[in-house]
Amino acid sequence: MAYDVSLDNTKDVAGAREEMFDFIQRNPNYNIIYFDGWDGLGATAVLRSIPQALLSMKSPPPGLCFDRIIYIDCSTWKSKRVMQRKIAHELKLDRKTMAMFEERDEEDDFNGVDHGSRDVIVEVSAMINQTLIQTRFMLILLNGSTDEVAPSEFGFPEYQ
């Protein structure tokens, strides 16, 4: 389920973050939350503060316990492949998987594929999926572009 969060009563980053945490705990079935900045309070500051706050909690409430917290800033992304590489790096995937990026980039360089046109590597998407499929994770994607980002394309498991 998806939900567009509107935090009308909040005027600062800490308040917006706490309202977001409250929403997550009260609505465990919403697995995709869209958050947009408003009236001078930017989404970047709020979203960046979420992993910091969660990781600093000594005993987070059960609704805020995650096996992994993944924060990816793709607001200035160059290509899907660059974003996928950031995700793989964040997940600390093995050297063999990371080497696929170099191999594919060399092939694309040789074939004259523009850097901005480089797509995800399907095998890496499978490794990302395999890494996350049995975990409870929070993915925070900061998307500053007008392009829609489909996390499943990068290997994130889809939830119904």
Score class of each variant (00 low, 15 high):
1 M>H: 08
2 A>S: 13
3 Y>H: 11
3 Y>N: 05
3 Y>D: 09
6 S>M: 10
8 D>Y: 02
9 N>F: 01
11 K>Y: 06
13 V>A: 07
13 V>D: 03
14 A>G: 03
15 G>S: 12
15 G>H: 09
16 A>V: 04
17 R>G: 00
17 R>S: 03
18 E>P: 00
20 M>D: 00
22 D>Y: 10
22 D>E: 09
23 F>L: 12
27 N>G: 11
29 N>W: 08
29 N>F: 11
30 Y>K: 13
30 Y>P: 01
34 Y>N: 12
35 F>P: 01
36 D>W: 09
39 D>T: 05
40 G>M: 10
42 G>R: 12
43 A>C: 13
53 A>W: 03
57 M>N: 06
59 S>E: 15
59 S>F: 11
61 P>T: 13
61 P>W: 00
63 G>Y: 01
65 C>D: 06
66 F>K: 00
67 D>H: 14
67 D>E: 10
70 I>A: 02
75 S>W: 01
77 W>L: 08
78 K>M: 10
82 V>K: 07
82 V>L: 05
83 M>H: 02
85 R>M: 06
87 I>L: 08
88 A>G: 04
89 H>I: 15
95 R>W: 04
98 M>E: 07
101 F>A: 09
104 R>L: 05
105 D>F: 04
107 E>D: 12
111 N>Y: 14
115 H>N: 11
117 S>M: 10
118 R>Y: 03
122 V>L: 06
122 V>Y: 00
122 V>W: 01
123 E>Q: 14
124 V>G: 06
128 I>R: 03
131 T>S: 11
133 I>D: 05
134 Q>E: 07
135 T>A: 05
137 F>G: 03
139 L>G: 02
140 I>P: 00
140 I>Q: 04
141 L>M: 04
141 L>S: 01
142 L>K: 08
143 N>S: 12
145 S>Y: 02
145 S>C: 08
150 A>I: 15
153 E>L: 10
156 F>V: 03
157 P>I: 14
158 E>Q: 10
160 Q>K: 14
160 Q>M: 11
